[in-house]
């Protein structure tokens, strides 16, 4: 029997006929990168191939690397294997990867969501035979509300804190969540301040998308300047000495995990806003239906439960171990 078009080895997802990896977790020669989060775009590959909008992001994160880019929908061939990238709707520059060989089509979703967040190009379905999908939130307990409702809540929360003379500190990933929040904050309420890591990444992205004005918090920033305003910070800043400058403050996390009361309390957040850059249960099912795949491989998230469910509705689904993390509440992702 011939080897499958994409296989999982100890370095990453590998395409044998093209001799190229996708989102490898160990250094390899050639690698296609779905998006800029550090569990997908790692150090040490000799050659990176990605979407032009992701190029400045991975250069910012990984320094001097050898990158080539290709537009969405543009087909290119390696050793007779046809590849193309398609928008994944996860964060700016995030792609799904379509691989076609001898009439057989595979799609690797990377991380993705169906809701249009107004910041990155929205997800597009691609017909395929085999699908490799994430399922970070592959449980029926996850249901996202429309983004505008959540953002209304966040702006409302900011106003309430302002009324009490407090600084609002909201935590979200440096790449993706931070800009998504920023894009939809209401600057008429007050000033928007940023943590250094977020300011740097946002500066990189300002060429790609319009965002409200931000003010970097430096050593010289006075406490009084922050009162009543909002601060966007990475999760790792929670509980660090850096945050003391914001006293008195209220904290909030924006994450899919905030759907669980326990998760918010464990992180000792005052508020939790359920806002995720991943598919929820129904989005995963909608997407899988539109992909029309016969074979489904679930990578990270609630893989066991989700694949069991897919089998129960008659699909050929299994799981594969990867080193992708999806959305975590922890801070590892921020290390880069």
């Amino acid at each position: 029997m011939e080897s499958p078009l994409l296989i999982f080895n100890d370095k990453g997802i590998y395409c044998p006929p093209a001799d190229i990896y996708i989102d490898a977790w160990r250094p390899v020669k050639k690698c296609i990168i779905s998006h800029g989060h550090s569990d997908h775009a790692r150090y040490g590959h000799e050659y990176y191939l990605t979407h032009p909008r992701n190029e400045p992001i991975i250069k910012h994160r990984l320094g001097k690397i050898n990158v080539e880019t290709v537009e969405w929908g543009e087909k290119f061939k390696i050793n007779g294997v046809t590849f193309s990238l398609h928008p994944a709707g996860h964060v700016i520059g995030s792609s799904q990867i379509r691989v076609e060989y001898k009439g057989e089509v595979w799609v690797f979703t990377g991380d993705y969501k169906l809701q249009n967040d107004g910041v990155c190009a929205p997800w597009e379905p691609i017909q395929c035979h085999s699908l490799i999908t994430e399922c970070t939130f592959g449980l029926p307990a996850f249901n996202w509300r429309p983004q505008h409702e959540v953002m209304t809540d966040i702006n409302q929360w900011w106003k309430e804190n302002q009324k009490e003379g407090k600084t609002s500190v909201i935590f979200g990933y440096t790449l993706g969540k931070a800009q998504r929040i920023l894009k939809h904050l209401d600057p008429s309420i007050g000033k928007i301040h940023t943590h250094g890591a977020i300011e740097n990444m946002t500066t990189v992205l300002r060429d790609l998308c319009e965002f409200p004005e931000t003010n970097l918090i430096t050593r010289e920033t006075k406490k009084e300047e922050l009162l009543g305003n909002i601060v966007i910070a990475p999760p790792s800043a929670h509980g660090s000495p850096w945050i003391r400058k914001m006293v008195p403050y209220e904290t909030a996390a924006a994450s899919g995990w905030m759907a669980f009361r326990g998760a918010r309390r464990r992180r000792a957040m005052d508020r939790g806003f359920v806002l995720s850059d991943h598919c929820n249960w129904h989005e995963l099912l909608t997407a899988i239906n539109e992909f029309g795949a016969e074979k489904i491989i679930c990578t990270h998230g609630y893989t066991d439960i989700f694949s069991k469910y897919l089998r129960s509705i008659g699909l050929d689904a299994r799981t594969e171990k990867t080193q992708y993390e999806g959305e975590t509440l922890e801070t590892e992702k921020e290390a880069v």
Binding site: L139, A141, I305
Partner: peptide, 14 residues
């Protein structure tokens, strides 16, 4: 199905 509900319950915890 009930198993999926139960699995979800184990993860949600309440």
């Amino acid at each position: 199905e009930l198993w999926l509900f139960e699995d979800s319950y184990h993860i949600v915890g309440d």
